[in-house]
């Protein structure tokens, strides 16, 4: 934590079974039915799933290439009033699914707004170490001790070891700890010993650089392929790290409806509507993941997807021109 600019003591850290459990514990501890939760729109599907069990009212705030829009956040906060929001959930680095990173000025503004409108900030940072371009942006937690910071070893060591953590003020952590005891008593000591050994006794930073180099080339392959093949009507984000690109098509396209056609072409993506709480917004967007395939496969996948989209756009245009949509 110190390496990324966050000072915290051991008793301000709770180990969880992956950051996913952390999301569920936070939701279980703090959300009452009807509570307003603010998130980026779109946001991590797993967070929406974790929160939804406790029936919050999720308000998504759009982002741009600099991260969550603070002007739109402030408008929303004025509308719901001081104390109206329980917490704001953000993935500020290489956001899932958007790929965007919240710039430092907006992180500072977010903290100001959190104090002014009295809501907690939950900062989820699974990808922070996987930066390919640009400089390190200090965590929101480094700017304010009140922030609940979620970390994980999933993307830098092994997701199967299910090890994450919450760094938070002691008063907050004590509540979450009580809830965790009721959930699983405690995490797996065996897994934690393995994790501790990895980060103490092995050249993990060198290994991490191998990961970064690999993902970097895959990111570049995807962005180059998008430039080469995607139609001019499409737009997409340019992530500086992480795993994802968020592509947006004209608003008359339904990416869920288009998915079977893409699958027939041998390529898949995640339709955008699943990343919004209403399941309707984001219908013309899609998340593209570049973490898994080789650069060659990524290029071929984007080429095929572009053909599907182009064919679909031609059909859509015919309906639009006829006024039938």
């Amino acid at each position: 934590m110190r390496e990324i600019g966050v000072r915290c003591k051991p008793d301000e850290v709770l180990i969880t079974t992956g950051a996913q459990e952390a999301l569920d514990l936070i939701a279980k501890t703090f959300i009452n039915p009807g509570d307003i939760i603010l998130t980026e729109g779109p946001t991590y599907l797993g967070a929406l799933q974790a929160f939804s069990a406790y029936e919050p009212d999720v308000h998504p705030i759009p982002f741009d290439d600099k991260g969550m829009r603070m002007d739109l956040l402030e408008e929303e906060l004025k509308r719901i009033g001081k104390g109206g929001a329980k917490f704001l959930y953000t993935i500020p680095n290489f956001q899932n699914p958007g790929g965007v990173t919240m710039v430092l000025e907006r992180r500072k503004r977010l903290i100001e707004l959190s104090h002014e409108y009295d809501f907690m900030i939950v900062e989820d940072d699974p990808y922070g170490r996987l930066r390919y371009d640009g400089g390190h942006v200090i965590p929101i937690k480094a700017l304010s001790d009140d922030v609940l910071y979620l970390g994980t070893i999933s993307k830098i060591f092994a997701p199967g070891l299910r090890t994450g953590w919450i760094a938070a003020p002691k008063s907050v952590l004590s509540k979450i700890n009580l809830v965790k005891q009721g959930t699983d008593l405690c995490g797996s000591s065996f897994d934690q010993v393995v994790v501790e050994h990895y980060f103490t006794d092995t050249p993990w930073e060198k290994t991490l650089q191998t990961f970064v180099k690999t993902y970097h080339s895959r990111r570049d392959a995807m962005l180059a392929a998008l430039d080469e093949f995607f139609p001019k009507e499409a737009s997409w984000t340019h992530p500086e790290g992480g795993f994802f690109v968020w592509a947006t098509l004209p608003d008359y396209v339904d990416t869920s409806s288009m998915l079977p056609v893409a699958l027939e072409a041998g390529v898949t993506y995640t339709p955008g509507d699943g990343f919004f709480p209403d399941g309707v917004s984001g219908k013309n967007s899609m998340r593209l993941a570049f973490c898994y395939e080789s650069p060659e496969h990524i290029r071929e996948a984007i080429r095929r997807l572009a053909l599907v989209i182009e064919d679909r756009l031609e059909l859509y245009r015919a309906f639009l021109e006829a006024g039938a949509l």
Partner: peptide, 12 residues
């Protein structure tokens, strides 16, 4: 609603 329905059916 016919346009949308036709477009979805043409997916398959």
């Amino acid at each position: 609603d016919m346009g949308r329905a036709l477009l979805d059916a043409f997916t398959y």
